[in-house]
């Protein structure tokens, strides 16, 4: 950053990102962390409830089932998938993988990461889906 940079670039207004679809998508991606923080706080409350005892735990599950909380967590689920879609395509650009002199195609790296999402979901199904 040189001394003349303030003369070259005008200061941006707060709504600069509303003027172009690319920047709106950028802001949407940034905003995916808002429902994530909500879910994380819910999860922390659940951990405290689990520490307190069986009644608190049942109370927490009831709280998680209330319509607004459920709706916000469904939003968090959608946000996590949108974040994944944007984040996975970055990996091959930041860290291209070469095997035996041949670079792995970008689609293969992206597909590998989606396979990871499915594998984690299957692990959860194995752990919680059947008793």
């Amino acid at each position: 950053m040189d001394k003349l940079s303030t003369q070259r670039l005008p200061l941006l207004k707060r709504n600069w990102w509303l003027k172009h679809r690319f920047f709106k998508l950028y802001m949407l991606r940034e905003a995916t962390v808002l429902p994530l923080v909500f879910f994380t706080l819910c999860l922390l409350a659940g951990m405290v409830a689990l520490l307190q005892g069986a009644d608190s735990w049942q109370g927490w599950i009831a709280f998680m089932g209330s319509p607004i909380v459920l709706a916000l967590n469904l939003l968090a689920l959608a946000a996590s998938l949108f974040h994944a879609a944007t984040f996975f395509v970055l990996f091959p650009r930041v860290m291209p993988i070469r095997i035996a002199g041949h670079s792995l195609p970008d689609q293969a790296i992206v597909a590998g990461q989606w396979a990871g999402v499915v594998a984690v979901a299957l692990l959860f199904f194995w752990l919680l889906g059947r008793v």
């Binding site: 879910f39 968090a76 689920l77 974040h83 994944a84």
Partner: peptide, 8 residues
């Protein structure tokens, strides 16, 4: 966030 959170 991308790999674990959807399932969680």
């Amino acid at each position: 966030f991308a790999v674990f959170l959807p399932a969680v």
